[in-house]
Amino acid sequence: MIAHVQTLFRFRELIGMWTFREIRVRYKQSLLGAAWAVLQPLAMMLMFTVVFSRIARIETDYPYPIFSYSAVLPWTLLATSVSFGVNSLINNMNLVTKTYFPREILPLGVIGSALFDFVVASSIFVILMIYYQIPVNINFLWIPVFLVIQIILMLGIILLGSALTVFYRDVRYVVPLAIQLWFYATPIIYPISLVEENLPQLRTFYALNPMVGIVESYRDVILEGVPPNFTDLGLAAAMSIVLFVVAYYVFKRLEVLFNDLI
């Protein structure tokens, strides 16, 4: 593992270059360019606000737009990374079969460009905070921790998913479905308090979903101004790390076979 990290370090410039490439290629020849990074989560947030606070009337402690957007942001980061990431190896077949570099750079670049989108889309969040007069507080310092946990989680999923896609193209059909189901298993459109009220017996099981801890932590820190729930966040971190270690091991073991099969 250490040797792999050392190799990656030697290729650090390529990671940056590849991230840059992913961003360039994504928005090249699109009229709105990087504005898409904002439009996607913004549209989701507006739709959720109409459907779940006007039509279905889900009770939340905070205005629905900022309540949902605080979860839509990390969720979009995950959904974009994973859906692009699992295809990153087979989409760059010509590179993988013809040049050498640590293959995990391809998934890393996808995550890098999704992070770029995340930062761009966060600008809307700042506007919402000003509009709803949410004060900045000391607990904001936790945010980098949430981000790191989420990156580890995404890396785990993408490394495993992209390696398996090389062998079984079924994975690319499984992923969109899984993301959709996962969306409902995460407190994005509803508050976690509803789960505690209506399905208390499933609460612990529910928190095994690492995104629960991550999304809740954002809300705790930003909206409530309190430190995150360490049980849920710790569980998310543990799940993410275990997944990542297993995924990286599998990825490296399968890596030697990519070219003979892709």
Partner: peptide, 20 residues
């Protein structure tokens, strides 16, 4: 082999050079 069709020659020189 490492060229991306949508990027310019200049961008590809940098990308390809880094891969190498």
């Amino acid at each position: 082999a490492g060229f991306h069709p949508d990027l310019t020659g200049r961008e590809n020189v940098y990308l390809n050079g880094t891969i190498l």
